[in-house]
Nucleic acid binder design. Structure first.
Lengths: 144, 144
DNA sequence: TTTGATAATGATAATGATTATCATCATAAT
DNA sequence: ATTATGATGATAATCATTATCATTATCAAA
């Protein structure tokens, strides 16, 4: 699997911050990358536990924060009560269609919407740091 | 204060569902309407307690759910860990600019963005139930 | 390559927001 | 007024996440 670049990024971040590269962090990163995007800490923990039962839930949480800070993951809330983490390496900004029936999350990009947002920010003398657009409804499979 | 209409709506909802119109529910609604939008349950509870210290936090939570179901309030998450409730009577859809420095929330409307979203939904054979667009950054006061 | 400083781990207690429980009370229809 | 039942207040429970702490692992320097 092509996760060499991601491992390098983590190593670089860890070196820069004078942290330590542990067996657990490496394994959690590998597992994170092997799973689909938008997983919760609990889901990742269950997957990790299959092959490394000694790794604790707290370490999964800690590592997810680390991945977020190093730019490999992004924390997001979709309103189901738990934080979800999406892959964030070499990804351009995108937004989400969330199916309220099956929980499926589809990503999309729309440059024109971004442009219009800047317009609004200007009008309000607001300086944008980030944004999110979540569209809730039924995906093509669930709307019968 | 012009909250006659809102009281009627609550009464109608309560009658329809065969619930009961209590002193607490009326007072919580009045207080909710007298405060600015986007408050948390805790904030509303503190305000309510000033004049009606006997009203419990659980009742505030329960009443906020009731107001949401009756269309007078809308629950929203802005990522600060607590649900916020906005006034939702006679209001058209709008989105939010959230200042990450001072917490200020400004509302805006942009019909063109709505249109573009429908386009995306069509393209994905997705049927929209609702959406939210939150723009995070610094408001004009906080960006120095 | 040992050593030593210190970051990381795993287990688990703590937290904070929200919800459930339950005995008692209030409302509204009879 | 009576009564059936929904509502309340106090508080225990829940759930996701974070903090604590004794122990272990990493890594840079000797």
């Amino acid at each position: 699997m092509g996760m060499k670049k991601e491992k390098e990024i983590l190593q670089k971040y860890i070196a820069h911050k004078r942290l330590k590269l542990t067996r657990q962090r490496q394994f959690i990163l590998e597992t994170f990358l092997s799973m689909e995007s938008h997983i919760s800490a609990e889901e990742l923990y269950r997957e990790v536990s299959k092959r490394e039962p000694s790794i604790g839930l707290a370490t999964v949480y800690r590592t997810l924060h680390l991945l977020s800070k190093s730019g490999l993951a992004q924390e997001r809330q979709f309103g189901d009560g738990q934080t979800r983490y999406e892959h964030d390496f070499n990804r351009s900004h995108h937004d989400h269609l969330i199916c309220t029936e099956c929980g499926d999350i589809t990503e999309f990009e729309h440059p024109m919407i971004e442009k219009l947002q800047e317009e609004i920010a200007d009008r309000n003398k607001f300086s944008i740091y980030t944004h999110r657009l979540d569209i809730y409804g039924l995906c093509k499979r669930c709307k019968r």
